[in-house]
Design a protein around this nucleic acid. Structure first.
Lengths: 195, 195
DNA sequence: GTGTCAACTTTACACGGTGTCAAGCAAAGT
DNA sequence: ACTTTGCTTGACACCGTGTAAAGTTGACAC
């Protein structure tokens, strides 16, 4: 063979990730091909379309950055509040690394069903983490009486959205640590019964 | 004249608004033309491009729905908290009516500079309202010591984003009143010093 | 009633980006 | 020698936006 196919495939994923996170403009298939050092058509030999390339890239990032381990850490927390903090740190700290990816995937949602499904899947996983934190708080008896567990989960999930991170960190110029600190405070203020 | 040009122009705006709010799919220029009962090309006789049509439509909605009056009402509030409530009601209640518009405009941000500017302008206006509410709270001496006025404005602004409304009302199935109630509670919990 | 203007029509095409198709080529494996 | 694998080049269809040009129709002026 002229080159190792496995290397090419993962090189495409690396390059796609890199372009999405560091590229200023919109990333076209031809940009990715050029950066990977192959022809645009060769891209379609590895991935059937743009959506699947993006989805594969998210999975690739997850493996490299080990999201599972990141989010798993919050499970070892004893109290609900600790768990909340650990989850906000875990997910909130992951956002900057998938932000470019997230923008591209979200932009495809309107036209591509598969991209929408991929994004929803990832968000469902985050919601699941929120749910676990809320349940831990509830079991501590610290959940505010104003919210059901489901409503509290929805609210926390919304608070932790990539869009909110974008606005505070990228648009408003907050530092990552200011973001995490304030989101923790806000989440606590909104979810915990003041006692 | 074969028909009144002013009627045609405002008919286009009405129809665009209607399609954006009620149409399921992505709205193309040809969809708008068809709905307005004119040829696609005639659209370009009234608006130079898609971005300007969308921008004109937002202005049109503003006039019809009288946003200014809506948001102005919060100025008459006496206390900071009252002002916060009035603003959340005013803006939060406006979101559902411009939601479709917002989606379309935001989708163009990446490619069209003018669309991005138009959206940023509108968001700047909302931020200004947030700032006024925060200042009123601050003057009451009720602003939490954890946040500067600017950070509090950023946070409130983020809380009141169209994206958060989308998630809670559209994705999570909250009613408009549940949304408004919970956002008020959350904003109060996050911004006010607990005394 | 002839002429002009304005609103709009039809037809055609350029452009950018995605995705498809087909033929060819070069190196590695057997 | 021959096949397979991983690519290349080149061409093309599709879609949506935007442009260009020539033609139609009705209202109004004189």
């Amino acid at each position: 063979m002229s080159s190792n196919p496995i290397n090419t495939k993962s090189r495409i994923l690396d390059v796609t990730w890199n372009l999405l996170e560091n590229g200023d403009k919109t990333v076209r298939m031809s940009d990715i091909a050029k950066a990977a050092g192959i022809s645009r058509q060769a891209l379609y030999l590895h991935f059937p379309n743009r959506a699947e390339l993006l989805v594969a890239t998210t999975r690739h990032i997850d493996v490299v950055k080990n999201v599972d381990a990141r989010l798993e850490r919050s499970r070892s927390a004893t109290s609900g509040v600790e768990r909340l903090h650990a989850f906000i740190e875990g997910w909130g700290g992951y956002i900057p690394q998938i932000h470019g990816m997230s923008v591209a995937l979200r932009a495809m949602r309107s036209t591509d069903k598969e991209a929408a499904a991929a994004w929803n899947d990832r968000m469902k996983a985050v919601r699941h983490g929120c749910e676990a934190a809320v349940q831990a708080i509830s079991q501590d008896g610290s959940l505010t009486r104003d919210l059901t567990e489901e409503a509290a989960t929805d609210l926390l999930w919304t608070l932790l959205s990539v869009e909110n991170w974008e606005r505070l960190v990228r648009d408003c110029g907050w530092t990552q640590s200011a973001y995490e600190k304030t989101i923790k405070q806000t989440a606590e203020a909104a979810l915990l019964s003041q006692s």
